[in-house]
C-alpha cells in the first residue's frame, strides 16, 4: 500500500449518487444560462496590458527625429541573450550614434535589462505582443523599424517606489 493514502471522512448517510448528480446538473445549468462568459473575442477585443508588460522594443527619438541612442554599448553588454547588435559611429561634431542597431526579437528573452541600463532612456520595451512573422529574419528589427514602432513603452519597476507602477 502506498504510504500516503488520502482517506476522506465522508459521512456515508449523506453520500447519495442520484441527488449529487442532480445537484451537479443544477450547477452546470446555472452556468449555462449565466450570460457572463469569460471568452475574450481576441482580434476584436484585447486584454488591457499591465504597464510593466515587457514586449517588443521601441527606440525613442529626440526632437530632431534621430534616435536617442549614443551607442555607448551598455545594452549589448548587459543583454543575457546576446540579441543586440550595435556598431557605433561618430559624426563630425564628435557625437556618437549607432551605425547599426539590430535587435533579434526571436532571441530576446524580454528581461528588460537593456531598458534598465540605458543612460539615455533610448531603448525601451513596449506594451505589445503581436509580433508574429513569416520568417526568422523578420524578427530582426533594425534601427528604423525600432524607431517606427508606436506602441506605448513599458514602465519599469522602480526600486525606490515598490508599490508604484
Amino acid at each position: 500500500m502506498a504510504i500516503n493514502i488520502k482517506v476522506l471522512d465522508r459521512p456515508i448517510a449523506e453520500s447519495s449518487y442520484v441527488r449529487s448528480t442532480f445537484k451537479g446538473m443544477a450547477r452546470t445549468f446555472r452556468h449555462m444560462v449565466d450570460p457572463h462568459k469569460v471568452t475574450v473575442q481576441y482580434p476584436e477585443v484585447k486584454h488591457a496590458l499591465s504597464p510593466r508588460w515587457r514586449g517588443t522594443h521601441r527606440m525613442l527619438t529626440n526632437e530632431e527625429g534621430n534616435a536617442k541612442c549614443v551607442a555607448c554599448g551598455l545594452c549589448p553588454t548587459v543583454c543575457p541573450a546576446n540579441c543586440i547588435k550595435l556598431i557605433p559611429g561618430e559624426d563630425e561634431k564628435g557625437n556618437r550614434y549607432p551605425l547599426v542597431f539590430e535587435i533579434d526579437e526571436f532571441r530576446c528573452i524580454f528581461c528588460g535589462y537593456c531598458q534598465e541600463v540605458c543612460p539615455e532612456e533610448a531603448i525601451h520595451l513596449g506594451r505589445h505582443y503581436e509580433n508574429a512573422e513569416y520568417s526568422r529574419d523578420g524578427h530582426v528589427y533594425d534601427l528604423e523599424r525600432l524607431m517606427a514602432q508606436t506602441h506605448p513603452v513599458c514602465e519599469m519597476w522602480d526600486p525606490a517606489d515598490p508599490r508604484g507602477e
Binding site: 452546470t28 445549468f29 452556468h31 449555462m32 444560462v33 449565466d34 462568459k37 469569460v38 471568452t39
Partner: peptide, 8 residues
C-alpha cells in the same frame, strides 16, 4: 459545452 463552461 461552451455555455456550461462559461465560454462562447
Amino acid at each position: 459545452s461552451a455555455w456550461i463552461q462559461g465560454r462562447v
